[in-house]
Amino acid sequence: MAILECKDLCFAYEGKRVLEGVNFSLNAGDYLCVVGENGSGKSTLIKGLLGLKAPEQGSITLSDGLKATEIGYLPQQTQVQRDFPASVYEVVLSGCLNSLGGRLFYTKELKQRAMENMERMGIEEIRDESYQNLSGGQQQRVLLARALCATKKLLLLDEPVTGLDPIASGEMYNLIKLINLCDNISVIMVSHDIHEAVRYATHILHLGHSQLFFGTAAEYRQSSLARRFLGGGQI
């Protein structure tokens, strides 16, 4: 059953189209990787899915009780965050913000949820550590735990392994796959790393100002587009 469906989606900045003709759907449990070169419209699509940018044309339909504000989002890190004095627990807990509703403060239940997600990510032991002193891999785990606090159904990850060393990226990919399989949380990941994308994802969406490919990862491997993009078809 589709939890997210995009129909004939177009995005424009100041009248200039940057992305058009996007048609895809995501079923519960899917792992979709969005690939494409820089400036191909990946970030714009992310903003659109999160409801931060209105499409110029077309529609995004969320179903199965999913709301745009209940997507667990893992944004790219900003410079500000790298030297931000906040404990791991504070950062993870802030993921529960969308469950606050009209309340002003976090309830016991929400604090419990933050604790559980820290355990899931194996970061409960560093809960009082300062976020800025963590390694890149640990920081991403913290942000992933925060994203998990915000969702039960869909994770949206924007280049989650950028800046990580090979071991940390491998761990991150495994962690994401584990969440996808064990908790049946759908994943949409934007990635530069097309080889890993094809390895872990069930579906691929290839963008280049318009939709160049959408289908399963297996189909993508066979396509001429993938061969060119992957460099001589060596998968």
Binding site: L52, K67, A68, Y73, T78, F84, G95, R146
Partner: peptide, 17 residues
């Protein structure tokens, strides 16, 4: 709680409504 979230990560807090 909201001021913390907006200070730490504006994009994330915006995305979560």
């Amino acid at each position: 709680p909201r001021i913390f979230a907006v200070t730490f990560d504006e994009n994330f807090s915006r995305a979560t409504g």
